[in-house]
């Protein structure tokens, strides 16, 4: 088993952080993990991304050109990564910023979530990427929700202890949205 996901959006949307949470959760579940941020000129275009690879064997190539899942938090990310989702893969689209555009692909599972609204419902409308993580975990089950919660606690305890409860609330909202699949 080897799975890859790219989290992409504006700098400040918490994408690198969210990738780290997934990576740490995967370690708790006994998986091999590789986390790498985007590098090169694309960082200057206002888009930040990171790739996380999970596997049950030592990870080979750190560079992925077909992702099992992609999270697009803004329009440039949708344009950049939608074509690179593997057939049958999952694409999470943040409709709080991407209102009408779609991947126009029938061969993937495109999950459209209003991440800002869902994050607000969970307790903090800035934690948009944690919504996407919740939905990803609910949909694909690569890691257990308990491991994600533990990872959130550990990472936030070091950096922003005041935000742990909001992180957990927003993660729960994301899990729920991933299970339901649509935002009412």
């Amino acid at each position: 088993m080897e799975r890859s996901v790219v989290f992409s959006g504006f700098g400040g949307q918490g994408l690198l952080f969210t990738g780290q949470v997934l990576a740490r959760a995967a370690i708790k579940d006994g998986l091999e993990v590789f986390w790498i941020p985007s590098y090169g000129p694309e960082m200057r275009g206002g888009t930040a991304s990171c790739t996380v690879i999970l596997a049950d064997h030592p990870i080979g190539s750190p560079v992925v050109d077909r992702f099992d899942a992609a999270v697009a938090m803004n329009l440039p990310s949708l344009r950049k990564f939608a074509p690179h989702v593997a057939p049958g893969g999952l694409l999470i689209v943040n409709t709080s910023l991407i209102t009408s555009q779609t991947s126009a692909r029938a061969d993937i599972d495109e999950l459209r979530l209003a991440c800002t609204e869902l994050a607000a419902r969970g307790g903090d409308d800035t934690l948009v990427s944690i919504v996407a993580l919740g939905a990803l975990v609910a949909r694909l089950g690569w890691v257990t929700p308990d491991s994600v919660r533990a990872a959130l606690r550990e990472i936030s305890a070091r950096k922003r202890p005041e935000i742990i409860e909001a992180d957990l609330g927003v993660f729960a909202a994301g899990l729920e949205a991933g299970r339901v699949g649509v935002l009412a």
Binding site: Q20, A23, I27, E32, V33, F34, W35, I36, Y39, P62
Partner: peptide
């Protein structure tokens, strides 16, 4: 290289 220089692994 720039990959290992920026990546995180357990």
């Amino acid at each position: 290289d720039g990959i290992l220089g920026q990546a995180m692994e357990p």
